[in-house]
Design a protein around this nucleic acid. Structure first.
Length: 342
DNA sequence: AAAAGGATCAACCGCTCAGCG
DNA sequence: GCGCTGAGCGGTTGATCCTTT
């Protein structure tokens, strides 16, 4: 037996609200309140609308102090930061933005903000892998398709992961790119390809292969100490001290002497590489290189499981949100430095 | 100028959860 | 403890507007 309908579907009006309906609803609620019974409300005021529809109309459009459109840069920052942190918890995000509704933020994110962030850079093959089929290709290429934890990653979590990866690539001095000690052993074919590219030059949009942006380890260390990406990761970033390790795969496998944060570990396998390198690495190391998503905790962070656990465990977004906001504002600002959202 | 395709956003749908008897 | 009910939420849809060809 299915769930009983919340109203008589045959006798309710659907579609856009007329000004008359708006006026009726607004006048009644302003005078009497909702009475904590949305289901009964439309009958009381003679509206042929579902109670749920009335509730939505009031909350999203008719109640006082609602703002529509014209999102500020600060609001963008908050939305992005929170989305990366907690995913599509629109009501929680809306709670941080006075006058904004969850529906408005959801629409704004889906239609504009997401594109600003994900679409402005040239869409890479990694993006396609991540988004085209819920990350399945990437999981398979990484030999992780059998990992039930990774399979539990929702599209939202994958999207957040992708955003985070972009942030990492741009800001993390500990990235592959910036740590020669992390560079992989190359197959003869790969070496030949690199040589060819170095001789012939590569797409000017891309930095040269295997040319560290910040070759100074001291510089990387300084920056590393200041990069505290989120409240959940410990902030004791430690520059990889495994100089001499020849392969990132080794590093990922052992993590000897490191106090890796989630951010550092998870992305190590891909960040800072050109698309060509990523593709090649994935293909040539299928099953052995990856984002080191072996830890249940790490995976949970990206998944809805974490969202649920975190939300229900603390149930105190009010207090945690400040931390959340600060850390992610910082993260977002780092991002924005290298990648203007305008 | 018109058609096609894309973007936007209001509204709906169906699910989960909390409160209550 | 259990079942019912309504509130709330996130995902999705579809109408409309806008842009491009």
């Amino acid at each position: 037996m299915g769930r009983a309908p919340c109203c008589d579907k045959a006798n309710v009006k659907k579609g856009p609200w007329s000004p008359e309906e708006d006026a009726k609803l607004k006048a009644y609620i302003e005078e009497n309140g909702t009475g904590n019974n949305w289901i009964a409300l439309p009958q009381k005021i003679g509206l042929k609308r579902c109670g749920k529809s009335c509730r939505l109309r009031w909350l999203n459009y008719l109640r006082p102090n609602i703002k529509h459109g014209g999102f500020t840069e600060e609001e963008d920052n908050i939305i992005c930061s929170l989305y990366i942190s907690i995913g599509s918890r629109w009501s929680i995000i809306a709670a941080q933005l006075p006058g904004r509704t969850d529906n408005d933020i959801k629409n704004y994110w889906n239609t504009r903000l997401k594109k600003k962030l994900l679409g402005k850079r040239k869409q890479s093959q990694m993006n396609r892998l991540l988004l085209a089929n819920g990350g399945q290709d990437l999981k398979e290429l990484n030999g992780l398709e059998e990992n039930p934890l990774l399979q539990n990653l929702s599209n939202s979590a994958l999207e957040r992961l992708q955003l985070h990866m972009q942030l990492q690539t741009l800001t993390n001095p500990l990235s592959f790119y910036n740590n020669p000690s992390l560079w992989p052993k190359l197959t003869p074919l790969q070496q030949k390809m690199i040589q060819t590219l170095q001789v012939n030059g590569i797409n000017e949009d891309q930095p040269p292969l295997y040319a560290p942006i910040n070759p100074s380890e001291n510089h990387a260390q300084e920056l590393g100490q200041k990069v505290g990406m989120n409240e959940f990761a410990s902030t004791n970033f430690k520059v990889n001290d495994q100089v001499g390790k020849s392969s990132p795969i080794d590093v990922l496998d052992t993590n000897v002497g490191q106090e890796n944060t989630r951010d550092q570990i998870q992305i190590q396998g891909v960040q800072g590489f050109t698309q060509l390198e990523i593709d090649d690495l994935i293909l040539s190391n299928k099953g052995s290189i990856g984002m080191n998503m072996n830890s249940e905790f790490d995976l949970a962070w990206w998944s809805n499981e974490f969202d649920t656990n975190r939300a229900s465990a603390s149930n105190s977004w009010g207090s945690s949100s400040n931390i959340l906001q600060n850390t992610h504002d910082e993260m977002y600002q780092d991002y924005a430095l290298g990648y203007s959202l305008q």
